[in-house]
Amino acid sequence: MCNTEPPASRSGADELATIEQLDALLVAHGYTGRVDHDEAELRDVHRTRTLLRHAWTLDRDDCVEAVNKMLRDARALPRLVRHDEQDWHMHATEPDAPLAERMRVEAALAFIDVIRMNEMGRLRICAADDCTGLLLDLSRNGLKRCGNRMNMIAFRERRAES
């Protein structure tokens, strides 16, 4: 979700500009629970995208503060759940909580793992001048680089050939 706005997006356009694009993202990533399908929800998701992109850039201690605020604001209460085709996993909000709040809390739970393992260095922003894509490096040696730039170059070459 954080890499849906330019220049981080693969297309170079805001890939979360419409309610329909948000719906497609939710389907692609298997979001469950309440979805309002309205402009207010889309604006809240945009605010969440900005908040999460900012949290990605923080040092460990500042990220702890941001994560704690996200959890506190949502009155998050972690619990294990199993639904649909998914095995046991953690939720910390109710299914009828606003979509953007659920997104923030899910991201906060993921940040917790990164912080606890002292792996903030694996959260990166693409080093290319024309890309602000976020990268979570899960490679063994921690040397993975952003593929958005190369994907964008290939995309533009295919369009030029058409």
Rank of each mutant, 00 (worst) to 15 (best):
residue 9 S to M: 04
residue 118 N to V: 06
residue 73 D to A: 11
residue 65 E to D: 15
residue 113 D to P: 03
residue 39 E to L: 12
residue 51 L to D: 13
residue 29 H to M: 02
residue 145 R to L: 08
residue 64 V to Y: 07
residue 104 R to D: 04
residue 21 Q to K: 08
residue 145 R to I: 08
residue 36 D to C: 07
residue 115 I to T: 09
residue 16 L to W: 02
residue 68 N to C: 10
residue 2 C to K: 00
residue 112 I to K: 00
residue 85 E to T: 14
residue 107 A to H: 06
residue 116 R to Y: 07
residue 94 E to F: 05
residue 124 R to N: 11
residue 158 R to K: 14
residue 84 D to V: 09
residue 110 A to P: 00
residue 123 L to E: 07
residue 133 G to S: 12
residue 136 L to C: 09
residue 3 N to H: 05
residue 81 V to L: 04
residue 21 Q to S: 07
residue 91 H to E: 13
residue 129 D to W: 00
residue 112 I to A: 11
residue 70 M to S: 10
residue 23 D to L: 10
residue 113 D to N: 12
residue 153 I to R: 09
residue 108 A to I: 06
residue 137 D to L: 06
residue 122 R to G: 12
residue 97 A to K: 01
residue 50 T to D: 15
residue 30 G to M: 03
residue 43 R to Q: 15
residue 68 N to D: 12
residue 160 A to K: 14
residue 48 T to P: 00
residue 101 E to K: 00
residue 73 D to V: 04
residue 74 A to I: 03
residue 82 R to Y: 00
residue 106 E to L: 01
residue 57 T to V: 05
residue 60 R to G: 12
residue 131 C to Q: 04
residue 124 R to E: 12
residue 50 T to K: 09
residue 96 D to E: 13
residue 143 L to T: 15
residue 18 T to G: 08
residue 57 T to P: 07
residue 77 L to M: 10
residue 103 M to I: 14
residue 102 R to V: 07
residue 130 D to V: 06
residue 58 L to N: 06
residue 109 L to S: 07
residue 138 L to W: 08
residue 112 I to F: 01
residue 34 R to G: 02
residue 129 D to T: 13
residue 100 A to L: 02
residue 17 A to P: 07
residue 57 T to A: 14
residue 141 N to K: 09
residue 47 R to Q: 14
residue 66 A to E: 11
residue 42 L to K: 02
residue 27 V to M: 06
residue 134 L to Y: 08
residue 35 V to I: 08
residue 126 C to P: 06
residue 109 L to Q: 04
residue 157 E to A: 15
residue 104 R to Q: 11
residue 162 S to Y: 00
residue 111 F to P: 02
residue 13 A to H: 12
residue 107 A to L: 02
residue 56 W to S: 11
residue 15 E to Y: 05
residue 13 A to C: 09
residue 65 E to G: 15
residue 8 A to E: 03
residue 148 N to A: 14
residue 5 E to S: 13
residue 19 I to F: 04
residue 150 M to E: 14
residue 144 K to D: 05
residue 149 R to T: 15
residue 39 E to F: 06
residue 141 N to M: 06
residue 9 S to V: 07
residue 16 L to Y: 03
residue 97 A to D: 11
residue 48 T to C: 14
residue 76 A to T: 04
residue 77 L to C: 06
residue 25 L to D: 10
residue 81 V to T: 14
residue 34 R to N: 12
residue 154 A to W: 00
residue 120 M to V: 13
residue 55 A to D: 03
residue 151 N to Q: 10
residue 17 A to Y: 05
residue 95 P to T: 08
residue 161 E to H: 10
residue 125 I to D: 01
residue 60 R to P: 07
residue 130 D to F: 00
residue 90 M to A: 14
residue 69 K to G: 09
residue 43 R to Y: 05
residue 66 A to H: 05
residue 67 V to S: 03
residue 75 R to S: 14
residue 118 N to H: 13
residue 154 A to L: 04
residue 65 E to N: 13
residue 104 R to L: 10
residue 52 L to K: 00
residue 92 A to R: 01
residue 132 T to I: 04
residue 125 I to M: 09
residue 162 S to L: 12
residue 83 H to K: 09
residue 24 A to F: 01
residue 141 N to V: 08
residue 72 R to S: 13
residue 105 V to G: 01
residue 130 D to N: 13
residue 92 A to S: 11
residue 148 N to T: 15
residue 3 N to S: 11
residue 157 E to N: 14
residue 62 D to F: 00
residue 69 K to T: 15
residue 129 D to S: 15
residue 146 C to P: 06
residue 159 R to V: 11
residue 117 M to F: 09
residue 29 H to Q: 09
residue 132 T to C: 08
